[in-house]
Design a binder for these strands. Structure first.
Lengths: 113, 113
DNA sequence: TATATTCATCGTATATTTGCGATATAAAAT
DNA sequence: ATTTTATATCGCAAATATACGATGAATATA
């Protein structure tokens, strides 16, 4: 973009947008699904479950980790990832904001367009 | 990207990622908040509420409309937008998938990393 | 110790997104 | 009929995101 106007928005809007961006790629959705399914934290198995090169998967994992949606620790030769449910559930609950705003205005039921 | 591997993912993962992408920008979050607050559908007021040029806002509105999160109709000289709550609420409910997967594996409580 | 395995990071190519001025379109006002 | 107003679209420039091969670092194995 010509100018980055991101900082001119409210902090909570930026935060929600950043979290949404973190899951705005099918590979990262797929990674989260794999992690949600696994009882034990997996690592390179994620690569096998995706149609992407190892380097690319590692990059997606890094993105999810940097936003906090997943945690990762190195266990010997392998890396172990899992969902940080605190962050994840809090993220989901943020969407309630829209319903609250609508409820205050009692708008949701009436479709005007 | 060198190669577009998007189509090699599951359709529902692509759909969820696309919806997440639609709200992955603070301007689009802000637009949805404005629309949720308003009893009547607004139009150019959105432009005034954002730190962006009219052309840019129009582009964001187009994105939200094309994914279906908002509806828009032309009313005389102005355009009227509002949230499509059916689509929006269904989108939010899709996030339940992760919790379900985790519950089946009874993983959510135990943090392994 | 040498080698293999696992994963992260670097560098790079390409694709997509973002932003805006300029312009088009269409209704309303003069 | 002309001008103003509201909005969409086009075309471009700059920023980001995506993908991967090559390489590095660290551990495990022969």
């Amino acid at each position: 973009m010509a100018i980055n106007r991101k900082m001119e928005f409210a902090a909570d809007e930026i935060a929600l947008a950043d979290l949404a961006k973190a899951i705005s790629h099918p590979a990262r959705i797929a990674i989260l699904k794999i992690l949600a399914r696994q009882k034990s934290c997996i690592c390179g198995e994620i690569v096998e479950g995706l149609p992407l090169a190892q380097a690319t998967v590692s990059q997606h994992l890094k993105e999810l980790k940097s936003i906090g949606l997943i945690k990762g620790t190195i266990e010997g030769k392998t890396s172990c990832y899992c969902i940080d449910w605190d962050v994840f559930n809090q993220f989901i609950s943020h969407f309630g904001v829209f319903a609250e705003l609508a409820q205050n205005a009692s708008v949701q039921s009436q479709s005007c367009c």
